[in-house]
Write a protein that binds this DNA or RNA. Structure first.
Lengths: 221, 221
DNA sequence: GGATCAATGTGATCTGGGTCACATCCAGCG
DNA sequence: CGCTGGATGTGACCCAGATCACATTGATCC
């Protein structure tokens, strides 16, 4: 199964170089090129791609904005964006990753590493330059709690209750939840009541807080 | 300048293999071996090391605990710990990184990648396996940077209102907020009302959701 | 001064949401 | 079978919370 790649960079020489490197690989296929962010969006309207290799510094629409838009309209997680830039700055990297990039590499990596990274990204995983990885860890290692160890209290909930809790955590009223689940509003109320009792909470507001704090729901997700 | 490495793994065959690979490099030197976490601490009492290559699953003291202790007593960021394990689980990886590991790799990486990772770690940077990097980004990408996407509606809030919103987002009732801010409950109610009006929300539940989604408050933070 | 506007504070009123009591359904078990 | 227990569903009651109308303070401008 070949990986379809689109190259986005404002310098023709760089694009030609990347294309040369990628085309030398039997499992990679360059299906398009773009000279800036706006152009990239047009190209992606025409062709199906698995991975977009994106430069950051570009005229008209920079790589971060382009990445944000590509990820916003991505369906089924495709295409994924691999950002490749010259400048090793935390601001650029974090902005790109926040915008949805699946990978962040510096242009000084050896070609084999770029090729490996493209394959990794196509598989759905991620690669980040070592200097940026260190900064990521510096910032977030402390928050790596017991990991996916969900609040044990959540385990007490039945399937239905968990379903209702998710809707509560989206800000829906009991009536809206009732409509969504095809049940009487009174029923939703008892479900919520049971949820609060099991989780030892006072009201739905605290339920929402717990949902976020426990990782049952995550911002943006 | 050579990088001094200590290998920690309970299987003699694995240690021998690693030593063989590392010794083939002129810039790397294996200065010690240990068969478990406790042993590693003893070895590090005797020798100076730049990088510890650490297995996770070991008897007596596992790699996570050993990593924690090594990092706790590390001086000037030395030695750094590179965790190398067979199992690609989020729980193991996050636990190791939280304990202070500078790198997390799977044992199925090609030897060159391990060598490159050791050099990267010795330089003070970090490497994380792609599958784990993806999970890291899934969890933290939303928290990166100030985020140009901070909901502009939040800017309309006055200082007092923002203060109240923060308390609402912790699950406090109007009465509790009133006590905290030294105001009548009725006052808190109007503040909340104004907040809802400005943010175009229906009730405090949606306010909590917005607070989390906009990054005004973050889980754990 | 006085006129205006935003921020803040308070009480009165009405409704969504939480609590309680109870019914139904189904699985497991003696 | 009948019994028990958990999950689910429903209606009635009451209060926290949302809405409204209004007072006070202080800054700004003519």
């Amino acid at each position: 199964m070949t990986v379809r790649v689109v190259i986005v960079d404002d310098q023709a020489l760089v694009r030609a170089g990347f294309r040369m490197v990628l085309d030398s690989q039997p499992d990679l296929e360059v299906v398009g090129e773009a000279i800036d962010g706006a152009d990239a969006l047009r190209v992606l309207d025409r062709v199906e791609a698995d991975v977009v290799v994106m430069d950051l510094r570009m005229p008209t629409m920079d790589g971060v904005e382009a990445t944000r838009r590509i990820c916003a309209r991505a369906t089924g997680g495709r295409p994924r964006v691999l950002v490749l830039t010259t400048f090793d700055t935390e601001a650029d990297a974090f902005a790109a990753l926040r915008a949805g990039a699946s990978a962040f590499l510096l242009k000084n990596v050896p070609p084999e590493e770029l090729l490996a990274a493209i394959r990794v990204v196509a598989e759905g995983d991620s690669v980040v330059a070592p200097s940026i990885t260190r900064r990521l860890l510096d910032r977030f290692a402390g928050q790596l709690g017991p990991g996916p160890t969900e609040d044990p209290r959540l385990a007490q909930l039945t399937e239905r209750e968990r379903e209702v809790l998710l809707l509560v955590a989206q800000g829906l009223s009991n009536a809206e939840i009732a409509a969504r689940v095809h049940v009487a509003e009174a029923t939703v109320k008892t479900h919520v009541g049971r949820i609060l009792a099991k989780l030892q909470l006072r009201d739905r507001v605290q339920a929402v807080v717990l949902a976020y704090e426990s990782g049952l729901v995550t911002p943006g997700g």
